[in-house]
Computed example of a mutant assay.
Amino acid sequence: MSREFTSLQQMLEHIGREAASQERVTLDLVIRAVGRRSFAPLLLLVGLILFSPLSGIPGVPTIMAILVLLVALQLLLGRQYFWLPQWLLRRSISEKSLQRALHFLKRPAQVSDRWLRPRFRFLVYRTGTYVIAGICVVIALALPLMEVVPFSASMAGVALTAFGLALVAHDGLLAIIAFALTALTAGMILFSLI
């Protein structure tokens, strides 16, 4: 079932409620909370995970890369529902770690919810969505490398979050900012490897 969220805060609160009282929270549970049909909330979810302290856990950026790659490729192929392998959906973290990450994201969510609004819609519909999905494929392919470049996975998380928010809020200006963040992250990685 796909859910429509009117704000980032609403999505985070819904995830927190769905995860409450679970000892371990699987990726499947979190994805079901945001909806398996919609590319935007899934992209936003991955971006938030990478932006949060969870990105410091070894392997998390690579798992998120696989998730972004699978979802973005399926969007580019025009699928209505996203298929994900069971081994990926069974990945889990402690409920306490998830709640801590959600709490960390609460304040940024409040700030972003005040600024988002529909504008430059041509950047977040049809062709714009496919361009965003293509860029997300490139980010996903680079994420495993980002595990060794300090803070780069978090920067990629900010870019993915911005793309997700742009699609959720139909905010093309935010999509432009996300394109710039992606370029900045790529530059940061290249500079650190030289």
Rank of each mutant, 00 (worst) to 15 (best):
S2C: 07
E4H: 09
T6Q: 14
S7T: 15
M11S: 03
I15P: 03
I31M: 11
S38P: 00
L42I: 13
L44W: 07
V46R: 00
L50D: 09
L50I: 02
S52V: 01
P53D: 06
P53Q: 04
L54K: 04
P58N: 06
P61V: 05
L67I: 08
L69G: 09
L69A: 11
L75R: 13
R79S: 11
Q80F: 02
Y81D: 15
W83G: 04
W83T: 12
L84D: 08
P85D: 10
W87Q: 13
R90D: 11
S92H: 14
I93W: 08
E95N: 14
E95T: 11
S97H: 10
S97D: 12
A101Q: 07
A101Y: 05
H103T: 15
S112R: 09
S112A: 14
S112Q: 09
D113I: 06
W115Q: 12
L116W: 01
F120E: 15
F120T: 02
F122Y: 12
L123H: 06
R126H: 11
G128L: 06
T129V: 15
V131L: 14
V131Y: 11
I135T: 06
C136R: 00
V137G: 04
V137R: 01
I139D: 01
A140V: 04
A140D: 01
L143R: 03
V148E: 02
V149D: 00
F151N: 08
S152H: 01
S152C: 08
M155G: 08
V158H: 00
V158A: 13
A159H: 03
F163S: 03
G164V: 01
V168A: 04
G172V: 03
L174E: 08
A175T: 08
I176P: 00
F179H: 09
A183K: 08
L184M: 13
L190V: 13
S192A: 15
S192I: 02
L193D: 04
